[in-house]
């Protein structure tokens, strides 16, 4: 990326910040949930930590909708 795009990124920063904040909030909520619970419908803790952290948006969705176990 060259300097021009960086400038433009700066210009759009007010728009990017809320996006990043919401994504982070989703990720952290999911991550905390993964770490505080032992049982998942399938998969193990490492898998879910990796999925939730690496796959933005999709990771937390999949975790909360089908990965999250009962107690």
């Amino acid at each position: 990326m060259n300097a021009v795009t960086l400038d433009q990124l700066q210009e759009y920063l007010p728009f990017l910040i809320p996006i990043i904040l919401v994504e982070m909030a989703l990720m952290i909520t999911a991550l905390v949930h993964v770490l505080r619970h032992k049982n998942y419908r399938f998969g193990n803790r490492i898998l879910w930590v990796v999925l939730v952290v690496c796959l933005q948006i999709v990771g937390p969705i999949v975790y909360f909708t089908i990965g999250r176990g009962e107690e």
Binding site: I19, E23, L26, T65
Partner: peptide, 21 residues
């Protein structure tokens, strides 16, 4: 309490913001 609202609202909010940007 089962995070359904959180997921759907935040994901759709992201789509709303990201698309024009």
């Amino acid at each position: 309490r089962t995070y359904k609202s959180l997921i759907l609202l935040s994901v759709f909010f992201l789509f709303g913001m990201m698309s024009p940007l």
